[in-house]
Design a protein around this nucleic acid. Sequence first.
DNA 1: AGATGATCCTGTATGC
DNA 2: TGCATACAGGATCATC
Length: 288
Amino acid sequence: MPELPEVETIRRDLAHAVVGRAITAVEWLDARIVRGDVEGAELAARMVGRQGAAVARRGKFLVWRFTSGEGLLLHLGMSGRLTVGPRSDEAWPRHTHLVVALSSGAVVRLVDPRRFGRVAWLAAPAAGPGGMGPEPLSPRFTAESLGRILAGRRAPIKAVLLDQRRVAGLGNIYVDEALFRARLHPARPAGSLGAREVGALHRAIRRVLRDALADRGTTFMDYRDAHGQRGEHAAHLGVYGRAGQPCRRCGAPIVRVVVAARGTHLCARCQPAGAHGGSDTEVSGRRG
DNA sequence: AGATGATCCTGTATGC
DNA sequence: TGCATACAGGATCATC
């Protein structure tokens, strides 16, 4: 499923194709994926003639910004693919929901079998999607800010990390990977982490995301980049999708449990449930 | 306020 | 072999 590294990879590919290019036609827009105040036909009409200014990313959202100051908000859900390529005479793939023709002759396509993805018209894309937590790869995301996010919360740390209002861009794969790297059990209450553990988690989140980005994302099943190519990071995952296989660190079998209503992969030896970090000082009390 | 659960959706995997 | 069912999960909305 597209998380921050996958969406960022697509953002870069898409930016090359659409910045400085005008939209000449919206050849197809399935109204069922359109959200927001502007409905499908009107949204398609508004896109035609707009010129691409930039492609931005916020968490797992993409914003196709136009020189007009407006923009198109895109989310790929679980199975969404956003591709760019030459116009083709071949039939569109099943579950094609959006086809946009550009002045370059290229065509942008959104294909999403499970249809959890969505598009929406943005009158002022500078605002972008609101209510989201910090970008984990930005300098503003520090161990201290992560500590404030986790402090006092009794919810499992995995639930907090998956919550886009707390930290933007993490999904099931990279939360499991980051917790493994930081040697933290996903069901630990978020507020129970000591300062040293928070620091380890902060480093792990950034390292995991950077490594995956360098590999152009993780392809498990659906994900492809904007050129239809697979990401290469799956071969380097520590725990996700590796249930029953030996831990790369200690050799114990990776187990799959359910935490925060999500399939969760961990090494029970490296990530003990009761660990509290020895002399570490617990982060507690009020946030802010 | 904050956390949990249901909902959407279809391809894939499992069970009988 | 074939059919039916369970399962996967990101975000949103309703309900504790």
